[in-house]
């Protein structure tokens, strides 16, 4: 727990949390901000405060909102993303043999090709939001799009 190291570790409860550890956990999940810990704002913790700012900056990505951009100009509707996305594979059986899923789309379906172009449907079921552990690191649609038309990003 890297963040914990840089907290005052006094368990003073001024933040409203029982311990500094609890605060650190919430900090990691983006539930609280660094400034919510009053002692940290004191000059003697200035260095720790700045280090934390940097650390959070890099971890903040996790809490930003997932964006999957499909560059329609580049896309030629090859349907690889539709087939390769594990969520589609699970909910749309035709994709198992590389076929187009049924229409209208199943509610979990993430991609469909319509009028020759790829459309992103229900981003909320993307493994990067839904899944746990390694599965959460899914990026196959971006990796395998031969046109580099898919960009996974956090904003």
């Amino acid at each position: 727990m890297e963040l914990y190291k840089f907290l005052p570790k006094t368990n003073c409860k001024k933040c409203g949390k029982p311990t500094c550890m609890a605060f650190a956990l919430d900090l990691l999940q983006g539930k609280v901000k660094i400034d919510d810990c009053p002692p940290l704002l004191e000059p003697k913790y200035k260095k720790n405060y700045n280090t934390l700012k940097e650390l959070i900056g890099s971890e903040e990505g996790k809490e930003k909102e997932l964006r999957i951009d499909v560059e329609t100009d580049l896309c030629d509707g090859c349907g690889i993303c539709v087939t390769v996305c594990p969520v589609n594979a699970r909910y749309c059986p035709p994709t198992l043999s590389g076929k187009a899923p049924d229409y209208p789309p199943e509610k979990h379906q993430l991609f469909q090709v319509k009028a020759g172009k790829c459309e992103l449907l229900a981003i909320k079921y993307c493994r990067r939001i839904e899944a746990q552990g390694r599965e959460r690191e899914c990026r196959v649609c971006e990796t395998y799009c031969p046109r580099d038309a898919i960009k996974i990003d956090y904003v």
Partner: peptide, 8 residues
């Protein structure tokens, strides 16, 4: 509408 076909 055409669904599932590529651009071509």
């Amino acid at each position: 509408e055409v669904i599932g076909a590529c651009l071509k």
